[in-house]
């Protein structure tokens, strides 16, 4: 990566985008625009310079835009938070996109607000939230005419509290701003479930899988899920019944997990979109921890290192094999 970082201001971003279109460096530009739901933005897929007028980079950019690279073919300009840049690295390694087809603009992220969590902390309904204002180290929440001051840990998405990559790992230019983690990163709390006996684990997970309605939102939102035809839709042979029965949900969730192993960068989108709030990140974290422990592999941080299931070492652990 070059020493000189090409920085661009927020106003400059619009000009940069237009320039990219004018110079035919990109066919599309992916960003965020204001939607109709408060505290959320929707993706903006610009096809020409004028479309960029709607670009919005102030706050609330939860979505991992690398998802849309599955569908969009061509040269793409894209905004990427630090964590999203890991998805881009992953997808480049998987051969889904080419680095030279991308123009990546890194954006500073001060942690993404979780309105549901904020509402809970302010003891009100998410619909009653009127305003969420950032103030240095805390948030001021206005709901039902009352103001409440909440800490960052009470408002931000869980993944942002353990943010390790506030600064994009690959980029072509950076938006001006501070590239620091929203809270000083602490070690992720050890998942209690891992220490429990097998029967309790089953009791927990069967309760979770039972609630799954198989809407496939977790799959659809996942940048790492890029099979053109998903096994859940295959019917000859039929691997998983479309009926949301507990056993099929179990097969679906574990298979989803195994398919993204090595590509999943724990961006947390699957859990964020789950309508029945299955703690999918617990599964993802377990899988990423195992990959690190067994094969010394961390997804999305190194463009050179081989993917864990494309390589092997003779001394790989095999204590589980008779």
């Amino acid at each position: 990566m070059s020493e000189i970082i090409p920085e661009v201001s927020k106003d400059g971003l619009l000009d940069l985008g237009k320039k990219l279109f004018d110079e035919r460096r990109v066919d599309y530009f992916l960003g965020y625009k204001k939607g109709t739901v408060r505290f959320k933005t929707i993706p903006l897929i610009a096809r020409k310079g004028e479309d960029l007028q709607e670009l919005w980079v102030e706050d609330f950019f939860h979505a991992n835009l690398s998802l849309y690279l599955k569908e969009i073919k061509g040269r793409v300009g894209i905004l990427a938070k630090g964590c999203d840049s890991r998805s881009l690295v992953s997808l480049i390694k998987e051969g889904q996109i080419k680095r030279e087809d991308l123009y990546i603009v890194g954006i500073p992220c001060a942690g993404q607000v979780d309105p549901g969590k904020a509402a809970k902390a302010a003891s009100c309904e998410p619909e009653e939230l009127e305003e969420i204002i950032r103030r240095n180290q805390e948030f001021v929440i206005r709901a039902n005419g009352q103001e409440k001051t909440l800490s960052k840990t009470q408002v931000l998405l869980d993944k942002c509290l353990f943010c390790q990559y506030p600064r994009p790992l690959i980029f072509d230019s950076l938006l001006t701003g501070d590239y620091v983690a929203p809270v000083s990163p602490v070690a992720r709390a050890q998942d209690d479930l891992r220490q429990k006996p097998v029967s309790e684990k089953w009791a927990f997970w069967s309760g979770q899988f039972e609630r799954c309605i198989r809407c496939y939102a977790c799959r659809n939102v996942c940048p790492a899920c890029f099979c053109p035809r998903c096994i859940v839709e295959e019917n000859m042979p039929q691997w998983v019944s479309p009926l949301p029965a507990e056993g099929d949900n179990f097969v679906f969730h574990l298979m989803r997990l195994l398919h993204v192993a090595g590509t999943c960068v724990s961006c947390g989108e699957c859990q964020r979109v789950c309508p029945v709030e299955i703690p999918l990140m617990k599964l993802n974290e377990k899988m990423t921890d195992d990959l690190r422990e067994l094969f010394d592999f961390v997804a999305g941080v190194d463009l050179e290192k081989a993917l864990p299931f494309r390589t092997y070492r003779q001394e790989d652990p095999q204590d589980f094999i008779r």
């Binding site: 479930l193 684990k201 195994l258 377990k286 195992d290 990959l291 067994l294 864990p308 092997y312 094999i321």
Partner: peptide
């Protein structure tokens, strides 16, 4: 072996 190592740990984790 790599696939099974991950699979067996995940199976144990979900119970």
């Amino acid at each position: 072996r790599r696939k099974f190592a991950i699979l067996s740990r995940l199976l144990e984790y979900v119970g």
